[in-house]
Design a protein around this nucleic acid. Structure first.
Length: 801
RNA sequence: GCCGGGGUGGCGGAAUUGGUAGACGCGCACGACUCAAAAUCGUGUUCCGCAAGGAGUGAGGGUUCAAUUCCCUCCCUCGGCACCA
């Protein structure tokens, strides 16, 4: 009887004692860096989602190790952040204390999976030995003008009482708690990720990442090519710029619209329209993103009374205020072309602007740009002065050049990606290493004072200003070092800063003098494999690319990209719904581990379906892998293996076919079909009279990445040398895959009518005549003309009558 | 609205370049063992049909000796983005 609990504990202990998974980073010959997205150490036990991410990732890492690589797979904890702080507010337990306990429990739990983590290089982002490097990173950004402070309208979550980055406020709700996000003007620290927009796009070409993730990032970065047009304000020295991707429609402009938040607006609006505009601005500012979205396509606006001068025709174009124009994209002013833009058309229809056509398709029809690819559009320019008759794309270029010549415009590339707001008004994060002199100017804290420790003497309850502001210790520390009247920055950093560089800190082995040894980073980075959830596509996975690029520019590393290959595991649902405490449908792995053991449980998760698809939890499905494990054990426990070379040929050839299949599948992380191939092999072995000892050993090696504990136990039984995980991955012999006889399918008029068994050496003619002779086939061909005979080597014969 | 993934038995799913659709497993049915049950083992299990045979991979059409796979039209579904000028 196989006893998983004792066997698994035994091998986990042996691996640990032998330091099997501790990697010598400096001397490794064939590095393979395999990472999973590190978890948040909550007080709860590991859930199925953790297992579904970590266990298959470990199986892949084990496979790479047996292929001969020095596989480094570290583990750490993304420990700063709101849950620990909210727990502290509720219970009074300091986050540092609860996190320390949680990390310990979580390590114990993670060890039960039986993974290859090199615990000697663990990181915990909430400990000073880690966050001193978070702060160091801030200082490098500051030194290189990539960190700056500005007042702007920011995303504010009332429930979390903090600012959020744009990436964390997608669709207008808080990423953490789903509360509606409001806009609020605040002074905040930003990192200039927008400087890297083009580079973040260019890098995609060299990444082995899911298409979907890349397209999501592209979408988020949002590159548009077009031009800025300068419009003089009638009767004033002022002018306004509009950004457009389709300047070919400039002769179709019948109005212009300015955003209610535009800073120049108050200088432009005429006296008699001031009140109406002010009222509209007030209303607009109060609206949340949700309100604006709820209004859908309905457009509102009011007249400013001002006019802009058309750069070509000199005509007066009325300027209106409307909240469908965004202040944080482009210039905050838009030229209105109702004939060729749906939004402008909606607006024009509501307020009675005329509609003037200026382009037409190649079939002579008018169209709006929503329906066509504006960068590949075909058609010509009409009613547009000197530009009439030009093709749209050519005209677009010529108009831009003409504007440039008049100094009334310039070609421009516009991105949607905005700078990363990193300040948070919360306690449990890395303090921003900045102090202010008595005049209020920001100064970097010199590196020798890092870690700039998070003070403990604060109330956690958020009030909208950072809890650090109450700390007497922090205030005194600041004055003691920098002088009387100096004050500390009291905001902490977004936790996504902490996780943007941990791939390097694993490699630093806790060094407090060096961010990462350059030669080690060169040897190991970029990480070869990174496995984690797709929800990070436009957050962590953009930030860590940006930070890596910046660190390269600062000269600390030579790597452009953090993660070479990226794979997203799928989601495990229960009853078709996402598991959540509130729904009460969370499956706890513990009971299953207790009953079946880690190997069975992880194999079941992998066998459910393709790793990247996830699947729906089913309580009885695990019976299948449980039987598989028990049958394996019985076979290896009871069977007397025979001397090499004595088994049936069928067994040998199936073994080699299995090696081939499992190897190909592991390479592509198709664990489900790897396991089914091993099940097929077992089905055959159970019927075999004789099995070579080598065949038994080879099968165990194939099983080792998938069921690591069971494989070690059997390997020991078969008196194999050392650990099975240290063995070489089996290779197959193509020659042994070919059997003596072939099974050939025979089709008549495309329908399967019979199968024949032929000698592998038989000629095409032989096979076709045998096919015709088969009674199941001749039944259909008798008395008919065979018009065509097709033979697909080794597969089938197709007869056409 | 735009972008991307996906629709295969009762269920999860498999099917290198078009070449025997349903591997592997769950479940179910029957049988063996047992006083009995569980466990285990054996047999069967896409649908219709006693059978011969016919139908069949979301729907409809096309290319081909041959289509889950390629092409066209449409439906459904999941995920992402969404007034980005």
């Amino acid at each position: 009887m196989y006893e998983p609990s004792s066997v698994e504990g035994k091998w986990q202990k042996k691996w640990e004692e032998a330091k099997t998974y501790e990697i010598d980073l400096k001397n490794a010959k064939d590095p393979f860096y395999s990472m999973v997205m590190f978890p948040y150490p909550s007080g709860d036990k590991l859930h199925v989602g953790h297992w579904y991410n970590f266990a298959p990732a470990d199986s892949f890492a084990r496979y790479m190790r047996m292929k001969g690589h020095d596989v480094f797979t570290p583990m750490g904890f993304d420990a700063f952040g709101l849950p620990a702080e909210n727990y502290a507010i509720k219970t009074g337990v300091h986050p540092d204390d609860s996190i320390t306990t949680n990390v310990e429990t979580m390590i114990t739990q993670l060890k039960r999976i039986g993974t290859m983590y090199d615990w000697s290089k663990m990181v915990n982002t909430s400990k000073p030995d880690y966050y001193q490097w978070t702060q160091w990173l801030f200082l490098q950004m500051f030194k290189n003008d990539l960190a700056f402070k500005k007042e702007a309208s920011v995303n504010w979550c009332e429930s979390c009482q903090t600012v959020l980055a744009n990436e964390q406020a997608q669709d207008g709700t808080c990423e953490r708690c789903d509360t509606e996000v409001i806009q609020k003007p605040m002074t905040q620290w930003y990192w200039k990720i927008s400087d890297y927009s083009q580079r973040l796009l260019d890098g995609h070409d060299n990444l082995d990442w899911p298409e979907k993730t890349i397209s999501m990032q592209k979408n988020w970065i949002g590159k548009s090519e077009g031009c800025d047009v300068t419009w003089k304000v009638e009767g004033s020295d002022l002018s306004l710029d509009t950004f457009t991707t389709t300047v070919d429609t400039i002769y179709g402009v019948t109005f212009a619209v300015i955003s209610p938040e535009h800073p120049e607006l108050e200088n432009i609006v005429t006296a008699e329209h001031k009140d109406a505009v002010a009222a509209y601005q007030n209303k607009a500012i109060k609206k949340t993103d949700i309100d604006r979205m709820a209004e859908g396509k309905k457009k509102t606006g009011v007249d400013t009374g001002a006019f802009l001068i058309h750069p070509f025709t000199g005509e007066k174009v009325p300027l209106w205020v409307a909240d469908y124009v965004l202040m944080n994209y482009g210039t905050g002013v838009v030229m209105g072309v109702p004939a060729h833009d749906q939004r402008d058309l909606d607006f024009a229809t509501s307020y009675g602007f005329s509609i003037v056509q200026s382009i037409q398709s190649d079939t002579g029809e008018t169209f709006v740009y929503d329906d066509v690819d504006k960068y590949n559009v075909k058609g010509e320019i009409v009613e547009s002065g000197d530009f009439t008759g030009m093709s749209i794309l050519d005209g677009r270029k010529k108009i831009t050049e003409a504007l440039e010549a008049k100094q009334l415009g310039t070609a421009k590339v516009q991105f949607k990606l905005r700078d990363w707001s990193i300040s948070r008004q919360r306690y449990w994060g890395a303090p921003i290493p900045i102090v202010y002199d008595p005049e209020g100017n920001a100064h970097a804290i010199p590196e020798e004072h890092l870690p700039w420790e998070l003070p403990r003497d604060v109330e956690f309850k958020p009030t909208g200003t950072s809890p650090l502001a109450q700390s007497k210790e922090l205030k005194e520390r600041t004055e003691k070092i920098f002088g009387a009247g100096w004050t500390p920055e009291v905001d902490t950093m977004d936790t996504f800063v902490c996780s943007s560089f941990y791939q390097f800190r694993y490699l630093a082995e806790g060094s407090d003098t060096e961010f990462v040894p350059k030669d080690i980073a060169k040897k190991w980075m970029p990480a070869d494999m990174y496995i984690g959830g797709p929800e990070h596509a436009c957050m962590h996975l953009i930030y860590s690319r940006f930070v890596t690029m910046a660190l390269k520019d600062f000269g600390f590393i030579d790597t452009e990209e953090p993660f070479k290959r990226l794979v997203h595991q799928g989601l495990i649902t229960n009853g078709g719904a996402k598991m959540s405490k509130s729904k009460g449908n969370v499956v706890s792995p513990d009971a299953f581990i207790e009953k079946y053991g880690s190997d069975t449980f992880r194999m079941y998760l992998m066998f459910m379906g393709p790793f990247t698809d996830g699947g729906d939890w089913n309580d009885t499905g695990i019976n299948g892998t449980d039987r598989f494990v028990k049958r394996l054990w019985r076979l290896f426990d009871e069977f007397k293996f025979s001397p090499n070379g004595s088994e049936e040929k069928e067994v040998t050839s199936k073994l080699h076919a299995t090696i081939k299949k499992v190897t190909n599948d592991m390479e592509r992380l198709q664990f489900n079909t790897s396991i089914s191939a091993l099940m097929e092999l077992l089905n055959l072995l159970e019927k075999a009279e004789k099995i070579d000892e080598d065949t038994a050993k080879t099968m165990i090696k194939l099983l080792a990445p998938l069921a690591p504990h069971l494989a070690e136990e059997v390997w020991e039984k078969l008196s194999g040398d050392g650990f099975v995980i240290d063995q070489d991955w089996p290779t197959y012999d193509e020659a042994l895959l070919v059997s003596d006889t072939l099974t050939i399918a025979v089709q008549v008029n495309g329908k399967l009518r019979g199968t024949i068994s032929v000698d592998a050496t038989a000629s095409k003619e032989d096979i076709i005549s045998q096919a015709k002779a088969d009674p199941n086939v001749s039944k259909f061909t008798d008395g008919a003309d065979i018009k065509k005979e097709i033979y697909v080597p080794g597969k089938l014969v197709s007869l056409v009558i």
